[in-house]
Write a protein that binds this DNA or RNA. Structure first.
Lengths: 205, 205
DNA sequence: GTCTATATAGCGATAGAC
DNA sequence: GTCTATCGCTATATAGAC
């Protein structure tokens, strides 16, 4: 394993530098998606970006830093997409709410499944990124628990566990469905998943 | 990437050889679980097994072959555990059936979560192993579809999709729950998961 | 700021003695 | 059947010219 530094050796302050950095990140996304983590070498990334390996190491201290930046950007995009929908106003009915979250998850995954697979399955997970994901999930589960607890149509006995199950079932079943065949239409899947969760949450005991 | 051969250069026919091979596999399981796939080097595996690197390559053509053997052994153990339970007789009530499958999944994952994570998430997936997993899942979904279709208490509209969702939800939510904290008791989780699936499958439309 | 050229190192895998 | 020693390769990362 390579030596790790935590900070880029230079913080880019100029326009051209930012563009170079951006091109390197975009190239890294393509290369990781196409070749996987191990075969996505820094030389390939630099070449794909039309830059030299030396320039790459001007902007990123090591290979994992590139991966970390891609992964957290992706996670943040998903989170902010949901926050934006929430800010636009939450539907009143539970099934509409559930469908909204399911669609958000589908959107987030449909984007670039190959890259997603590399980022969240294949690649080594540096501790800081693992912590970031854990916190993000904890936040989602807490939000879900609050929503479920306040909803009079929700009949489930164990609300915290139901919140956990709801959040992780959406995330992981969407993940699996997309991973299996990204080109398959999602509407049947979406309907069944929403039905499952709504029945679970609202069936009288 | 290393050159790949598909057959071990020697099929072990003697007791000592089988023991050596077994020790190497056990060591590989420990090393992969502790260090991950990339850092779980063949040298480390050999060292952990108390053998030399040369002996390792007497029994396995390359590193991926070791991983493949561990993974398929694990998958087969899970499958045969379920088949055994089925052979002992399937409960009549749907909720008992669901609980049986959920418990089987929990047992299969509780075993060695760290190794499981490496095998099924981190490691590169050789095509033959990917095909094996796909077939195993397809079989499980078909079995589930047959069971659901024949059950008069099942009310769900889209049986094939419901079968897919049932199988993958059990598999992936159990996987996630265990991965998060292997030491946490599973009974609350088990109850909620069973409740979710039973309500989904049996609620009148 | 970007390049070329290269060092450093660790990997998988092999050869051949015992 | 097991070992030691080592090859050949490719990776990350660095140095220094421009």
């Amino acid at each position: 394993m390579p030596e790790r530094r935590l900070k880029p050796r230079k913080v880019p302050g100029q326009l051209r530098a930012l563009e170079t950095r951006g091109r390197l990140l975009e190239a890294a996304a393509r290369v990781f998606a196409a070749h996987g983590y191990a075969a996505g070498t820094t030389n390939r990334i630099a070449e794909e970006a039309g830059h030299s390996i030396g320039s790459l190491y001007q902007y990123f201290p090591n290979k994992d830093a590139i991966l970390l930046e891609l992964a957290s950007a992706h996670a943040r995009a998903g989170i902010s997409a949901i926050e934006q929908r929430l800010a636009e106003g939450l539907p009143d009915a539970l099934d509409d709410r559930i469908r909204l979250f399911v669609q958000a998850a589908l959107d987030n995954h449909r984007d670039d499944p190959a890259l997603h697979a590399v980022l969240f399955e294949q690649a080594p997970r540096p501790p800081e990124f693992a912590a970031f994901l854990r916190d993000a999930e904890r936040g989602a589960v807490e939000t879900a628990a609050a929503l479920l607890g306040a909803d009079p149509t929700v009949t489930v006995a164990d609300v915290p566990m139901a919140a956990f199950l709801t959040v992780t079932t959406i995330e992981s079943s969407v993940h699996r469905f997309i991973a299996r065949d990204p080109s398959e239409p999602t509407d049947r899947f979406e309907n069944e998943l929403v039905t499952m969760l709504v029945r679970y949450l609202t069936t009288p005991p």
